[in-house]
Design a protein around this nucleic acid. Structure first.
Lengths: 243, 243
DNA sequence: GATTGAAATCTGAAATTTCAGATTGCAGTC
DNA sequence: GACTGCAATCTGAAATTTCAGATTTCAATC
């Protein structure tokens, strides 16, 4: 309602924007998304072989978009393609944690930049999201928590305005949705995540770049470790990763 | 000579290893390497259009490996592919600096991990490389400096043993070789780089992870800024990037 | 049974053809 | 001249075919 009210009736083009060329998703992107989801959900063991023609048969499409999707997965470090030998899955606890480390490093830098760039409008956005996250945390609204988490991290990216750094994060996603919900069923874990989000937002609002970065990194690494312990049991060498 | 001496004559298989599947480079990789080099050398303006069929004609190959190479470049953030519209270059000073930032973030983490994992053999390797870098710095042996720089960073990666993090670095390379040599022609710049390398090696040898990370990040960002100022003149917003 | 070499089969890479959406050019109408 | 609609052309996406290296199978030889 507020939205319609703000658009002036004297602007006939109001609300009309250029069509985003990415709205139509290609076959390759569909395949990529599906295979990626299966890999991080653990459907394939680490080292398991994927079969290009078999996948194409199952999906009722030609091998071309399957090849392209596998190439994308290779670029993300989730599979290894050996010419004329096969495609092998590269996802296990170690890889997942290294992905989290890469994410922590890059997103930490972005949080630092956001702290330098924040304005009042950005502060209000973050505060609003934190408030909603607190509510969802206490009420156990798990899907809402996941969605707000996305929005929180997205808001920081918007403030930071580092398009390339953000693009690097897309390939570091290693959470399986269903398992993430399972982990968030634990109130203490939810509260820990919320405390961390709050600390990040406070540091950014205070323009404390170093602190924002540190909080962001710790948040990402701690929650990743918790998640991976839940999914894989023990499997990580702790020595390298103490923060 | 020392090498041959170390291999025992009683081991008939000595020196025989599995064939690395990547030894034979595919057409796609050749095209990727060439196009990548041209892009970071500034052969194409930011926003300039690349033409898939034209490139295939020039290279005397089919469009398939050209498509694949362009896809790889897209994954690296160096081009944007719009379906049925064209391929557009995304490389300019801002992108180059964001690439350096991503590299600084990830490689900083790796330096910290190396500091935790270092052993005596690793210390000796780094010390040896630093010694050779000092010599090349004072004698203006530019190609040697570039090669030793690669080896220095590679040695740290070997110590850190984070395969995935290392793989993320491959797509963050943004130095044009010829221009890099030009920048290194300046003795003060060479010395600054050497001082930074030394500081990194010292921090790693001292197992001071935080310090190693900080030194690595500063080294990468400072030298990138210097390089980009040389190549592009001013063009970066300094405000975001103060370290 | 062990070894060797050739044939058959498998596999991703590359070439070629076709497809389908996007853009441009041109002719007709007002 | 401005506008509209259609045809021609352009472009990356996808399908299909072929290629060339890798692996397996099978038959012959010792």
């Amino acid at each position: 309602m507020d939205r319609d009210h703000r658009e002036s009736a004297s602007e006939p083009g109001a609300g009309i924007e250029p069509v985003d060329p990415h709205l139509l998703r290609s076959l390759r992107e569909h395949v990529h998304e599906r295979l990626r989801g299966l890999i991080i959900a653990g459907r394939f063991r680490e080292g398991e072989r994927l079969h290009e023609r078999e996948l194409a048969d199952l999906l009722r499409i030609s091998t071309t978009p399957v090849k392209d999707a596998l190439r994308m997965l290779e670029g993300e470090g989730l599979v290894r393609i050996e010419a004329r030998r096969g495609v092998f899955v590269l996802f296990g606890p170690r890889r997942a944690y290294e992905m989290a480390m890469a994410r922590a490093a890059v997103e930490g830098v972005m949080a630092g930049i956001a702290a330098r760039r924040i304005d009042d409008s950005g502060k209000a956005d973050l505060a609003g999201l934190v408030s909603r996250m607190e509510h969802a945390t206490e009420h156990g609204d798990l899907e809402e928590i996941v969605a707000l988490n996305e929005r929180f991290h997205g808001a920081i990216s918007t403030i930071a305005r580092c398009e390339y750094l953000q693009s690097r994060l897309d390939s570091q996603r290693m959470y399986d949705h269903a398992r993430r919900l399972a982990v968030l069923g634990d109130l203490e874990e939810r509260r820990a995540g919320f405390r961390e989000h709050s600390a990040i937002a406070r540091a950014i609002a205070a323009r404390d770049a170093d602190h924002a970065e540190r909080e962001m990194r710790q948040h990402i690494l701690r929650s990743a470790r918790h998640f991976l312990n839940h999914v894989f049991g023990t499997g990580l060498e702790d020595r390298d990763y103490v923060e």
